[in-house]
């Protein structure tokens, strides 16, 4: 597809991992002869993403999400296969390409720790050579949109995790990239912060018709932002399609977290996923969830009961383990 923003064909990345047994003798032996094991992190992935799409990129830990994003961002050299983003081969790291994309990693930051975020923004301006007027307009619009006007002049070290992440995202988007790779942008943040960041990403996507690839452990992020999801597992694409299909297919059950007054066997209510004394986690069909809860409340000495969507990782892990 010629007009795809991102197109990936049979992309592979194999890591060479030094291998040795535990112990001093093995360590010494490995000095002389290093044995390497090949670990395929991405084992032949293909997909295309149209300009302006927001795609959720899902999979359990170690599925190859980050490795794929890093290849698309030009940080890793593919072992095999082809990746094109805006027509560029990412690993060449053409400045023309780098100027049009950004990468946000939720667990790492690039802001100057001891200075206000405003100073870091200034550095971004210098690096990307953003014209002064354009820079000011973009910066101020983003600050407004994220609602961080009151804290942009506070040293970053004094900000909360969520506030810092907002600044990270603003900084990473000041050059108005057309391609966004967001790796867990909301990890560890509270619900309000997540929501704000989500709506910011949606607004940015709308305004600049940017293409977004997003990984997240939070189903809510994916539901709010992505029409389409790509699920990978063991380095391969296992599902590529509308989010609705994924939820119907794989999140067809709910988890009941039950706290009992005294330990009891709940296995006849549903599948017991975990039982730790008086705390029991039950898995029941989505349609059954409210009926089973009612029965539990009636028949057992229940101290507390919550109904939860299963964590997306668990869903994916469970579905693809079979």
């Amino acid at each position: 597809m010629a007009d795809a923003a991102i197109s990936v064909a049979e992309l592979r990345k194999i890591y060479q991992v030094p291998e040795r047994e535990a112990g001093l003798r093995a360590a010494l032996r490995s000095l002389v002869r290093r044995r390497v094991r090949e670990v395929p992190a991405v084992a032949g992935v293909s997909f295309t993403i149209a300009p302006g799409e927001i795609v959720g990129f899902l999979g359990p830990n170690g599925a190859g999400k980050t490795t794929t994003l890093k290849m698309l961002a030009g940080l890793l050299h593919p072992t095999d296969g082809e990746a094109r983003v805006l027509g560029y081969q990412p690993y060449r790291r053409d400045y023309a390409y780098l100027r049009q994309m950004t990468l946000v990693m939720g667990n790492r930051n690039q802001l100057q720790w001891d200075l206000p975020a405003l100073d870091s923004f200034e550095l971004q301006r210098a690096i990307y050579r953003i014209p002064q007027t354009e820079f000011r307009a973009t910066r101020d619009a983003f600050i407004d949109l994220m609602d961080v006007g009151a804290i942009v002049s506070k040293p970053v070290r004094n900000l909360s995790l969520g506030e810092r992440m907002k600044m990270e995202i603003i900084g990473a988007l000041l050059h108005r990239p057309k391609i966004l790779f967001l790796d867990e942008p909301t990890i560890g943040l509270d619900v309000t912060m997540q929501r704000r960041i989500r709506s910011f990403i949606a607004a940015y996507n709308q305004r600049y018709a940017a293409t977004v690839m997003l990984t997240s452990h939070y189903m809510a992020d994916v539901e709010a932002l992505c029409q389409r999801v790509i699920v990978i597992h063991h380095g391969r694409v296992r599902y590529d399609g509308p989010l609705a299909g994924l939820v119907d297919r794989f999140a067809a059950y709910r988890q009941l977290e039950v706290s009992l007054a005294e330990p009891a066997d709940l296995s006849h209510y549903g599948e017991v996923v975990a039982a730790n004394g008086v705390h029991v986690t039950l898995r029941v069909a989505k349609a059954e969830a409210s009926r089973v809860s009612a029965r539990l409340l009636n028949e057992q000495a229940v101290a507390d009961l919550t109904i939860e969507e299963p964590p997306i990782d668990d869903v994916i892990e469970q579905v693809f383990a079979t």
């Binding site: 940080l75 023309a96 780098l98 690096i127 990307y128």
Partner: peptide, 18 residues
């Protein structure tokens, strides 16, 4: 060590200069 070199490498400037 921290993996933050990635942020240098995605910038459209010479990495060594940066």
């Amino acid at each position: 060590k921290q993996g933050t070199l990635d942020f240098v490498l995605i910038k459209p400037v010479d990495a060594q200069a940066l």
